[in-house]
Design a binder for these strands. Structure first.
Lengths: 177, 177
DNA sequence: TCGTAGCTAATGCAAGCGCATCGAAAGGTT
DNA sequence: AACCTTTCGATGCGCTTGCATTAGCTACGA
């Protein structure tokens, strides 16, 4: 029988292809055939890794979320270390896959499985930001506000209403309050 | 020859159908056939009102934007009247077609014609909010921040991370600063 | 009445979609 | 070598899509 395939690795490879396509063409640009081509695997391989397109999209969104969490966690305090400075750039960086996130968020509005993944991710991000803002009078509320502001600014940057620098400046001013 | 058709009225009727479908099924649910059925007109009528699907979507987004501006303008001060109170509910109401806006925003990320419509709309909204926040130290910056916060909160409500009431409370607290 | 201009709805067309299927290939075991 | 299991890639299938096309209808003016 043929060499065993590293399914985890392949699934991630395919999820990365999904994100690249969503970034370039939006959600509608994510067809199985295009994903297979982008990931340099066959259609059959995509189908063997994911039973349905929805499974594939869910996994891709989970990957996006994992990466966002990983970046946010990189800003978390180490045990015994002083509370790190929360910066505008740092907050924006957790949405570095902005277009992809926006495409998924819009789809999540009409797809409960995707919405579920997003909610779980938001809950964890909220926890991380609450800890990062532990020196505020109400860290939870501050985290809620900061997350929303960051996402709103990200959307405005994506559509070209604001520049990245403007968005960062807004966050810095907000954090300075 | 047949009775002249009120094209403006029909275009708006079709745009409304687009928005209803986008609200229920996201952007992918907006096919010409479904729009025609939703608007209770034939495929031919849709095609006669809009040369391409892109035209139709652009017009629909303009309609969404016009409605948002109309709502925001309703909050604008009348000449000689005192500056009205900006409320959280008032700010959120300009995004009452939240899912539709989110779907269009995501698509605008990869569609320059839609992005252009959105930018123009944001610019006008920004102007309105700047005037509404004229009593702040920096009204422009305050408007930028408020718009972003509102959009971020709207997204979080749509995906179910926050409730409408939570979003409103965040805005009220922000406005009270 | 006839001709014309505007409007109509249904359908054709080519392309693409997600998912299922199938014969072939590959590697391990006996 | 033969057999079995796993993996493979190409393609079939039924359906949907945007846009083009066609034959027909209607109202108005000469």
């Amino acid at each position: 029988m043929p060499k065993a395939v590293d399914h985890d690795s392949r699934r991630r490879k395919i999820a990365d292809a999904v994100c690249r396509l969503a970034d370039k063409r939006g959600f509608e640009g994510v067809s199985l055939r295009d994903v297979a081509a982008e990931a340099d695997v066959s259609m059959g391989a995509v189908q063997r890794c994911f039973h349905t397109k929805e499974d594939m999209l869910r996994f891709a969104l989970q990957e996006v979320g994992r990466r966002a969490l990983s970046r946010a966690r990189g800003a978390e305090p180490q045990v015994g270390a002083p509370l790190p400075q929360v910066t505008g750039e740092g907050v924006l960086s957790h949405r570095s896959e902005a277009k992809v996130w926006l495409a998924f968020a819009a789809q999540a509005a009409v797809s409960p499985p995707l919405a579920e993944v997003l909610r779980a991710n938001y809950a964890e991000l909220h926890g991380i930001f609450t800890r990062l803002l532990a020196d505020r009078p109400d860290p939870e509320h501050a985290a809620t506000t900061l997350l929303a502001l960051a996402d709103g600014l990200t959307t405005h940057v994506v559509v070209g209403h604001l520049s990245h620098d403007q968005a960062r400046a807004v966050l810095e001013a907000h954090l300075a309050e």
